[in-house]
Computed example of a mutant assay.
Amino acid sequence: MKLRKVTAASAAVLAITLTATACGGGEKDSDSGSSGGGEKITIGIKIDQPGLGLKTPDGSYTGFDVDVATYVAKELGYDEKNIEFKETKSADRETALSRGDVDFIAATYSITDERKQKVDFAGPYLLAHQDLLIRADDDVKDGEDLNGKKLCSVTGSTSAQNVKKDFAPKAQLQQVGGYSECLAALQSGAVDALTTDDSILAGYASQEQYKGKFKLAGLKLSNENYGIGVKKGDQEMVDKINAALEKMVQDKSWDKAVQDNFGPANYQNEPAPKIGNIVQ
């Protein structure tokens, strides 16, 4: 009888121990996704923007956004081999964060009041401006010089709409499917300028096949504060990313990333912005 009581008690203790171990393991795994302690982190980027986020033929990723995202992920505790980049198109960014498809997004993601209703932002980490890409032997002094000129941008681009509405209402706007089409038209003389963010334009101008053929006009037609998008309500992640961005600036890794990705285009970048300083 005594033996049976001891066996039952031991079984009960074993059951409690196993249950506690299982619960403890589950909590650790669930916490790792937001704290940076997990084995893998998924980051949303663009994969078709040279100089910012580009997937190369060998399957690797390059660009300023990629360099920033990689630096941040390492500061969060992830080895580079455990970073998974995932294409996140502009229209899908908020959904990807809310569903948990990605842990954060670094993809020319301008911080706006409308977007802040759906996601939280760390940064900004780059202040870009709407500008024009023109042929190397051309010159544009201001937006008014565009009146009567042919502008090219991607279908639905707010940059092209802004130029036509606010800076050059008499400009001829052509909208196409991709920036590569605009570049071909610009090179052939079919259009006079390509318009979008200067950082994106610098990335294209830096490509080997375009070096010396194009230049940025240097018109600061708008302010675009690039931030890192995080799931709404994850303040812990925002704080950690902000700390990583501040360190990246302090140790000059930010300057190196700018030079590596935009240098060939002589991109006149703004100094690294201060965390939380949104330029209107």
Rank of each mutant, 00 (worst) to 15 (best):
R115V: 07
D120N: 11
E114W: 05
K274F: 01
K213C: 03
S35Q: 12
E270G: 06
V13W: 05
F104G: 02
Q259W: 05
S199V: 06
V119S: 01
K40Y: 12
G189D: 11
A73T: 00
V66D: 01
A272C: 06
K240F: 04
Q207I: 06
Q49N: 11
D138W: 04
Y179L: 14
V13H: 01
F262R: 01
E80Q: 15
M237E: 10
C152P: 00
T196C: 09
D120K: 02
T19W: 09
E181N: 12
T195A: 06
R115C: 04
E114F: 09
A272F: 02
Q250F: 08
Q172L: 11
Q130L: 05
A243S: 10
G25L: 15
N261T: 09
D139T: 15
C152T: 08
E87G: 03
L146D: 01
A205G: 03
K274E: 14
D260F: 02
I278A: 03
R4F: 11
R99D: 14
K81T: 01
L54M: 11
T19R: 02
R93C: 06
N162E: 15
K55N: 09
V163C: 03
D137L: 05
K46S: 14
V140S: 02
A9L: 13
K274T: 10
G63S: 04
D197G: 09
F214Y: 13
D92A: 10
K116A: 08
Y125M: 04
F64G: 01
I134W: 01
T95I: 11
E270W: 01
E246G: 13
L52M: 10
G227M: 08
L221Q: 05
V72Y: 01
F85I: 05
L219V: 06
L76E: 02
H129A: 09
N266R: 07
N225R: 05
K89L: 11
A136G: 05
D192E: 07
A168D: 03
G100T: 02
A193M: 07
N82H: 12
L221N: 04
D260Q: 13
R115N: 04
E224A: 14
E144P: 00
T19I: 13
Q130D: 14
G203K: 00
A168R: 04
G143Y: 02
K164F: 08
